[in-house]
Structures are given as C-alpha cells and as structure tokens.
Amino acid sequence: MNSNLVANVEVERKSAQYDGKQFNNLVTIAPQSIGKTLGIVKRYITENRVDTEPTSRLPMAAITTGSLAALSNDKVHIIKLGHSSILLKVKGKYWLLDPVFSERASPFSFLGPKRFQPAPISIAALPNIDKVIISHNHYDHLDKAAVRALAHKTAQFLVPLGVEGDLAAWGIDKQKIVAFDWWQELETKDTLVAFTPTQHFSGRGLSDANTTLWGSWVIKTDNESLYFSGDSGYFPGFKTIGDKYGPFDYTLIEAGAYDEDWADVHMTPEQSVQAHIDLQGKVMIPIHNSTFDLAFHAWYEPLERALSAADKQSVVLNTPIVGEVTTVGCCEPQESRWWHSL
C-alpha cells in the first residue's frame, strides 16, 4: 500500500480548505446564523414531536474484557457502542472511533441531549487502545471526559487539523497526536488510514465556528476495507472517495439527526444509502442513531427509512444492536429489525 505518511505537526494550517480564518467545504453551503438557530429552538419548543426517545430499554449485547480478548486476531471486528461510537479490533489491536461515553452530548453535565442508555462497556473495562480516531469536534463525536479518561491507555490519537489543540489542552501528550488534512494517509505494518472529505462544519462554542477541520476515515488492511463517515451532507465527494479507495467491505454511515433545516450538513437515510453506493460499499451499517435525541424525527425512523431505501436499491444493510460483534468477511450480515419489538 502506498501512502503519504503524516508526522506530528504544528498547526500551520497549510490546508487548501483553510482561508486564513476558518476551514471550508468543497462547495459553499448556507452559513449558520443566529436567526436560523433561534428558529430551530422555536421549533423544539412549539412542535409536537412524537417518539423522539424510546419508552423502554433498547436491546444490548454484553461486552467484557474477556469477550473482546476471545475475538480472533486475524480478522477485523466491528462493535457499535452507540450513536457514532465504534470499537474495532483490527488484527489484534483495539481502535475507537468517535468515542462518546458521557451521559450527555453537551458542554453541560446537567443540560443537553441525554443518551438513552449507557454504553455497553466502560472506559475502565476497555483494554489498551492502539488508536482513537476522531471525525470532528462536535459534542456527540468528541467527548472531552472520554478523551481524558482514555489518555493513559491509548497509544495514538488521529484527529482533523486543529483538533490537536483541543486534545493538547486536555492533557494529551502531543507526541501521541497526529493531525490530518483531507487525503492525508498514515501507513503502519498492517493498516492504512486515510482522512477524507465530508460536507459538514465544526465548533464547540460561540466563537470557534469552523476553526478545526471535519471529515471521514478510510481504514484498510491487506484483506479488509472500512469507511467511517463521521457527519456529512450528501455530496459528490462520496463517489471520489469510492473511486480512490473503494470498494469497501463495510461502510459505517451516518443515518440520523437529519432535518430540512440542516439538509446541507446531515443526510437523509435515503441519501445515506446512496452515499454507500457511491462509495462502492458491500455492506452498510447505519450509525448516528438510537442513542441521543438530536432532531425532530422518531428515534427509530432513521433505521426504518434506511432499511426501506436499501431494499429498493438492493443494498445489503446490517443493523446490529449495541454491543453486537460484526466480523468482516465471516458471516452473513444480519438485517435484524430489533426496533420493531419496542
């Protein structure tokens, strides 16, 4: 595998996406405004929202240190932890994608979207982590408390340009952090990791809009290939990524928290299925759903719509419950409609 090895860098932001003040998408999208934000807040207050949270506990498979150790070291195993948080076992090493373990996806411990139920394993119970991979700095993808708790047991943090400043401020050793621009790659003995574009935005406060980059991740071994979408609106970049790095055995694609008021930066489930096709994916796992109430749709709607679109497009969909292990190239994907029983 050829690669352009990324070294630890100072944030000089030589990125083509950076205009000297902020990062930008490949195409211009409507900027967020105070008026639009207030309009969305008004909708949350006045609209009659139905089934935005489950009324009973969601099914979950138990994960233990022992069950993880028992997974083979010659395969890639995928475990959904909730929302967009994924635990991978890659050739015997453990990777975490967008690990969020906090009770709320919010800057506040007492306010903001509260998770429907805890993650299936605690950070303390996790084995040592080879890589933590972050797609962007929104609170439902970059959890400060989780990052700090993972610091002592993680060998490397792979992040978008600018996010290394956040991690360093939170006490992560700078030598452990690798910052990526779009299309940059990191190759090791067994794997290739590439940071690829999305159509989204960043920010954790009122004054830092788009001061860090956002994106998706390609993960390849000699025999397996995964795509992790982070967050994105539907855009031609999916086909570009598929042409460069596809086909993918599994695509982990955002399907949830969509709405007409932010259609540029979050896909509908139908668009998510089309993105999977553009990426030349073989099996799609819908992520970014069933954990937090972040939109106006019912909590189960993303899965139902993704399943319907997949059927129409002859796409193979895998819908594991939280904690369930999916092994690449091992078994037939399970199109379980587990949400129908709730």
Rank of each mutant, 00 (worst) to 15 (best):
N4M: 12
E10K: 13
E10I: 08
K14T: 15
K14Y: 11
A16C: 04
Q17S: 10
D19C: 03
K21S: 10
I34E: 10
G35S: 06
G35V: 07
T37Q: 11
Y44W: 10
T46H: 12
T46K: 15
E47C: 12
E47F: 14
N48Y: 06
S56Y: 06
T64E: 07
G66R: 13
G66S: 07
L68E: 01
A70H: 04
H77G: 03
H83N: 15
I86R: 08
K91H: 05
G92R: 05
E103G: 02
G112M: 02
G112N: 03
R115G: 09
R115S: 08
R115L: 04
A119F: 05
A119H: 06
P120V: 05
I123Y: 03
I123G: 03
P127R: 01
I129Y: 02
K131C: 07
I133T: 10
S135N: 14
S135R: 14
H138N: 09
H138I: 09
D140V: 02
D140N: 14
H141A: 14
H141Q: 11
A145Q: 13
A146R: 12
V147M: 15
L150V: 08
K153N: 03
K153S: 10
A155S: 15
A155R: 14
L161D: 08
L161P: 03
L161G: 03
L161E: 08
G162R: 14
D166S: 13
V178I: 14
W183F: 06
E185N: 13
L192R: 13
A194P: 11
F195P: 01
P197N: 01
T198E: 02
H200Q: 05
L206D: 12
S207I: 11
D208H: 13
A209Q: 14
N210H: 04
T212E: 10
W214S: 03
V218E: 07
L226Y: 10
L226M: 08
F235V: 06
G237M: 00
K239F: 07
T240A: 11
F248V: 04
F248M: 02
G256H: 11
E260K: 14
V265A: 00
V265Y: 00
P269K: 04
V273K: 03
V273M: 06
D278G: 09
G281C: 11
G281V: 13
V283A: 04
M284L: 12
I287G: 04
S290P: 02
T291N: 11
W299T: 06
W299D: 07
Y300C: 00
E301S: 08
P302G: 02
L303W: 03
L303V: 01
E304Q: 12
K312L: 12
V315M: 13
V316K: 13
T319I: 09
V328A: 01
V328K: 02
V328P: 00
G329P: 07
C330A: 15
C331W: 11
E332W: 02
E332F: 06
Q334K: 15
Q334V: 09
E335P: 10
S336D: 15
W338Q: 01
H340S: 12
L342T: 10
